[in-house]
């Protein structure tokens, strides 16, 4: 039981890295990223492939973050040129296209058959001990780091300006400051978190396949962020915990309900995420805890 909880906690921590990132992008800056899972996939495959090429994890994990950041950069520039609704759609398509590339380029990614046998965190880093515990410690360290970075960023003059941009971009311009530079910086920096999260995921699950990177994952993260309250760093953590509680709880429930198949349970998860997106928008856009921003 304890090891099960620990395993769930690792995934929750990996997800909260993404929630923290999305929170910086949307919660604090108002940037809509519907392509979170694309950057996650880039991080995961980068780290997995580099480690299979013989690089140590101490290098591949930072590379995962960098690759996602690099992929985020042109996208961020694009966000400056497009109306917000257009950008949202482009991001959806961007993530789907990345998944398409992963499933198509078999020589590199193993295609739909997947990429098995990825070095686990404990083996790859040469840390002895229970692999789950090692993963937990590492993920926890990354999340703590990301929280510290987020807090420092948000409570700085830079953070003040991104919140001003979220509130009213034209008023920012009237002060003689271009919103663009800030938006690009936030987008790229937070995608570093997402890439790192993908790297950790690859070496924790040790197997990657394109169907792990569907659009649904992006909206898991959105729901986690909105639940915790957009524009609150602590809320991102709470939101991820609630979300993982639900996802894993549904697996648990499935063990208890013999009549429901695993496939049906996945429909239930999809349905509950869809329903919560509708209900949150309708009744509680500020989230359960009430962040500063909300999506109203």
């Amino acid at each position: 039981m304890l090891s099960y909880l620990l395993a769930v906690a690792v995934v929750a921590l990996i997800y909260s890295l993404m929630t923290l990132a999305l929170n910086l992008q949307f919660g604090f800056t108002g940037l809509i990223n519907f392509g979170v899972v694309g950057f996650f996939a880039i991080g995961a495959y980068t780290s997995a492939l580099l480690s299979q090429a013989g690089l140590p994890l101490e290098l591949t994990l930072p590379c995962a973050a960098l690759a996602a950041g690099l992929a985020a950069w042109p996208v961020a520039l694009l966000s400056l040129r497009l109306r917000i609704e257009y950008f949202a759609i482009v991001m959806l398509g961007y993530a789907e296209t990345i998944r398409l590339v992963i499933s198509q380029e078999e020589w590199l990614t193993g295609g739909v058959r997947g990429l098995p046998g990825i070095a686990s965190l404990s083996v790859g880093l040469g840390i002895p001990g229970d692999p789950t515990l090692v993963a937990f410690a590492l993920a926890l360290a990354c999340v703590v780091g990301a929280v510290l970075v987020s807090r420092r960023l948000v409570h700085s003059p830079f953070g003040r300006m991104i919140q001003a941009i979220r509130d009213d971009e034209d008023a920012v311009r009237a002060l003689g400051k271009s919103p663009g530079r800030f938006k690009v910086a936030v987008f790229v920096v937070s995608c570093l978190f997402v890439g790192l999260s993908g790297g950790l995921y690859a070496h924790y699950i040790t197997y990657l396949a394109p169907d792990q990177f569907g659009a649904l994952l992006t909206f898991y993260i959105w729901v986690a962020m909105i639940l915790g309250g957009a524009g609150s760093v602590g809320g991102a953590l709470v939101g991820s915990a609630i979300l993982l509680g639900f996802i894993e709880g549904s697996r648990f429930l499935h063990d208890l309900l013999p009549g429901v198949s695993a496939v049906e349970m996945s429909s239930v998860r999809l349905g509950v995420i869809g329903l919560s997106m509708m209900l949150l928008m309708r009744f509680r856009p500020q989230g359960l805890l009430g962040g500063k921003a909300g999506c109203g």
């Binding site: 995420i273 509708m278 109203g296």
Partner: peptide, 14 residues
């Protein structure tokens, strides 16, 4: 518009 967009994705999933 973002609220409606997110809700419409939720509806799609549901």
């Amino acid at each position: 518009a973002v609220s409606s967009l997110i809700a419409s994705i939720g509806m799609a999933f549901f």
